[in-house]
Design a protein around this nucleic acid. Structure first.
Lengths: 120, 120, 120, 120
DNA sequence: GTGGTCTAGACCACC
DNA sequence: GTGGTCTAGACCACA
């Protein structure tokens, strides 16, 4: 049996950035908090944030202007969406359907539950 | 920012046992692997498995016969179902709905995806 | 012949805590001695005290605040009373009545003895 | 805190013999099971039974005829009664009254409970 | 400092 | 062999 391990902190920070892009809090060319600011805010080592930013830059989600800072890329929304959608469809959703099957929860039940959450 | 932690190993083992009950691999009065066997198989300390079994016994999901072993309780299925359903509705489902909202995935889309998974 | 065993240490500590609640030495929201303090005071391993506290928490008799300590629950008195009353009626009392029968002690005699103890 | 320790096995066997005298299963001059028989029956080392018999002989509850066996003494009943009564009055009863006080159980309640047990 | 978890290894009683 | 308990010592997150 393989036990779940806590995902790396840098990856969790990447998700946090992605969330802000998806929610359109941070749109194209928005300047991200500096590595140092972010590190303080999240109570994390600056190197960890640097790693996150480097990773996001590789993915084409943010870009850097040396000496100025990091900015949200033009097509960041599109890319984040693709990235997260892939994750969701490949990992989360199958797990949910599997669980629904085990728990004998029908799809119509799900629709009702969905209504409950939205009304909150 | 609060980082996600994995649940404790003993709790993950409890889920594993629960899964086997839900899948009806292990039915009422089925004898669980002994604490020591399980510990070797999962490569954890026997105390950790003992903790899992003690926890499940409290929940009325398994029972013990001293010197013999642990067995699946009569109404284990019912209890596991209630336990996992509560978890699913309180934790997993809200996360899924939130993600669907972020990713702009509609409910009808979900239904189609569901069909794809089932046909596999 | 089945020889009498003493109850586990962690259970005896639980009784000790219960006594303090029943005597109203420790009332609602009273902070229990920390696991380590208690372990030193009772000369047992911290794990043993931790086990006691975990057990009492499950029973709803105490609650925990991470990083702070354990506290007596609001309805601890009620719960301890129920717990101990059940024990008393099921175990202690039958033994006493059996012994009275063996010793030919009548109920009225008991009442007199009771008076003697109270006057002390 | 002093934890309860299991009382010595030889003492528990002595209680067992005493019970049989009190119940008048074993009356004056009744021949006790031999040390070996008793040891086998109780799954105990013969030395332990020997210790019990020696102890009971000291107390004048049994007597021995070398090469024949152990027998219940003439005034065994009287002596056992005195011995157990002392124990009961000094140890058990005060504990019970203390517990009744903690649990708010009145004497009249006790009388009712007594009726319940007797009818079983 | 606090509790929460895990490992390692031991001893006991029961079967 | 089984489970049940206890000790010793470690690391983590929270405050």
């Amino acid at each position: 049996m393989e036990f779940k391990k806590t995902s790396a902190i840098y990856a969790q920070i990447a998700e946090y950035v992605g969330d802000n892009v998806l929610r359109k809090n941070w749109e194209a060319d928005y300047r991200l908090p500096s590595i140092r600011e972010m590190a303080v805010a999240l109570e994390v080592n600056p190197n960890t944030v640097a790693r996150t930013y480097a990773y996001l830059e590789e993915q084409g989600i943010i870009y850097t202007q040396r000496g100025i800072g990091y900015f949200v890329a033009k097509d960041a929304y599109k890319r984040v969406l693709a990235w997260r959608k892939k994750d969701f469809l490949q990992n989360d959703l199958p797990a949910v359907f599997k669980m629904m099957s085990l728990l004998n929860i029908s799809f119509s039940e799900l629709q009702i539950l969905r209504g409950n959450y939205e009304s909150k």
